[in-house]
């Protein structure tokens, strides 16, 4: 099955405390391990919400809202697409990550039976 792993970060800490080179290296090592295990099938890191836009729908009306978004907590900062056999396997992989802050959300992607 396929899962989407959403990295949610605290907006303020993210701005105040950019990752150290060591933390980056550790993350890269972890990511590489995932790739080598055939788990990662897609990934991306997002620019800060100050460069993002939102569109709100209300009937026929469309409202564009410029970033940065008002929330300061749990803004999506990046994502992974993983191919795993079970939610447990995804959890087990995530446990091994070097992260020491933030919230990571694992959501199963709906698929047709068989894939």
């Amino acid at each position: 099955m396929r899962v989407l792993v959403l990295a949610k970060e605290d907006h303020q800490t993210q701005a105040a405390k950019p990752p150290t080179p060591e933390a980056m290296a550790e993350f890269q090592k972890f990511n590489e391990e995932l790739v080598k295990a055939g788990v990662v099938i897609g990934d991306g890191r997002l620019y800060p919400s100050s460069q993002g836009k939102r569109m709100r729908f209300d009937g026929k009306k469309r409202t564009v809202i410029d970033g940065p978004f008002a929330e300061t907590k749990e803004l999506v900062a990046g994502y992974w697409l993983w191919q795993v056999r079970s939610m447990d396997e995804a959890l087990e992989w995530l446990k091994r990550s070097p992260f020491d802050a933030g919230t990571y959300e694992i959501r199963q992607i709906m698929e047709f039976e068989g894939m």
Binding site: K36, A37, G38, V39, Q83, R85, F112, E113, G114, M115
Partner: peptide
């Protein structure tokens, strides 16, 4: 394998893909 069959069979595709990617 066709739809509705035991899901272990289509899962073999994922297994093969994983092995190939590794």
């Amino acid at each position: 394998a066709t739809a509705g069959e035991d899901l272990v069979r289509p899962a073999l595709c994922e297994e093969a893909l994983r092995l190939g990617r590794i």
